[in-house]
Simulated assay, not measured.
Amino acid sequence: MDYTRLFRLDGRRVAVVGGASGIGREVVGALVAQGADVVVADRDEKGAGETVRLAGAGSVCTLDVLDADATRTAVEGWGPLDGLVVTVGANVRKRIADYTLDEFDRVIALNLRSYLTLVQAVAPGMAERGRGSVVGFASMRAFQVEPGQGAYAASKAGLVQLLRTAAAEWGPQGVRFNAVAPGVVRTPLTDQIAADPAWYDAYAQASALKRWARADELAGAAAYLVSDAATYVTGTVLTVDGGWTAVDGRYDPAL
């Protein structure tokens, strides 16, 4: 084993779906830095182009993952993939009694159904080649919830189980499936919270590190799971939450 190349991705082709901003953009930067040939797929073509510019390499694919036919066509155009990282997601923060079916369907479609379409499109080709790594971004909300997170939490818990099942089904062919579960990360998805100082600070205080994550602090988890450093890691969840799920709800007594 040449440990100097354990995390290198030279000669590997990886698609990042949702790479136009936020966590996806940082994942692209990390993969390119390790030598990967990266396809940046996103509905936001301009944002994807900016990601490629910042990373210094890569190609852009304009893609709406809610269009299953377009997704399958795009995957065919990418050619053989060694890795797929999916960061797309949406949230509508409402109590269950106030949710409309359209809102529920919108969250489930982007957070879960789109992953199914991508896995179905990518996994068979990886299986034929006997290797590949798929990384989906779930959330700590798959395990720990609060009022207003019903649809989002359900979709992320479903994603974890979808990826675990895929790991079981394609594992014998050498394809790995894992989830990353972030805690609170400052991205456009959390603008609503950042606009409320009390809410923002409460979230910061809930983790062991007592701060929010930066988007770039999630990139290493994805790069690791795609790399040869994780060749025996599949069907698992890598939690990157600053210790939130370890210490949430704690009381610190005077001892």
Rank of each mutant, 00 (worst) to 15 (best):
D98L: 01
P124A: 09
L101E: 10
A194N: 14
L6E: 08
L163S: 00
L54K: 09
G58T: 05
L159Q: 05
G235M: 10
A121G: 07
E103L: 01
G158R: 10
A179N: 14
R211V: 07
A223D: 00
R186F: 07
C61M: 15
L31K: 01
V184L: 11
R113W: 02
K156W: 01
L101A: 13
R106N: 11
G11T: 08
G174Q: 08
A219F: 01
L118A: 10
F177I: 07
V39P: 02
P197K: 05
E217V: 01
L116S: 13
L9N: 03
A168N: 10
A215F: 03
D98H: 00
R53N: 12
G22N: 05
A153G: 01
W244P: 12
Y115D: 07
A74C: 12
V180E: 01
L84V: 10
Y251V: 15
R214C: 03
R106P: 07
A215T: 00
D82G: 06
P124L: 11
G150H: 07
T62H: 15
Q149S: 15
A20V: 04
M140C: 11
L110W: 00
M126H: 09
A154S: 11
A68P: 05
Y152R: 03
S155K: 13
A33W: 08
G77S: 06
V40F: 07
Q149D: 12
A142T: 01
V134E: 05
T51E: 05
N178Y: 12
D102C: 05
G29C: 11
L189Y: 08
K46M: 15
P182S: 03
F177Q: 06
R106C: 14
V240G: 02
T62G: 14
G77R: 04
D228F: 09
N111M: 09
V145R: 08
E26Q: 12
R8C: 14
D201L: 15
G77A: 06
T236V: 14
E50I: 09
A208W: 08
G235K: 05
D69A: 15
T187N: 06
E45G: 13
G174F: 05
Q120I: 06
S207P: 02
V119C: 12
I23V: 14
K210C: 11
L112Y: 04
A33P: 09
V86H: 12
R25F: 04
G22I: 09
G130E: 08
D69V: 15
Y224C: 06
A41T: 02
L110S: 06
A230L: 01
A223I: 08
A168M: 14
A195M: 14
T71V: 14
A221R: 00
S139V: 00
G125Y: 03
R131F: 14
A70G: 11
D102R: 11
R72K: 15
P124H: 12
G183P: 07
V38A: 09
E45Y: 13
V134D: 00
A166K: 09
D252M: 14
A222T: 05
S227D: 10
A30S: 12
M140K: 10
D216Q: 12
D191Y: 03
K46V: 15
R93A: 14
A204P: 10
P253L: 10
R5A: 13
T239C: 02
A204G: 11
V75T: 03
A223P: 00
R93D: 09
G249I: 05
L118G: 04
D196P: 08
T190R: 06
A219C: 02
A219H: 00
V119S: 04
M140T: 11
R176K: 11
G220R: 00
G49T: 11
G132H: 01
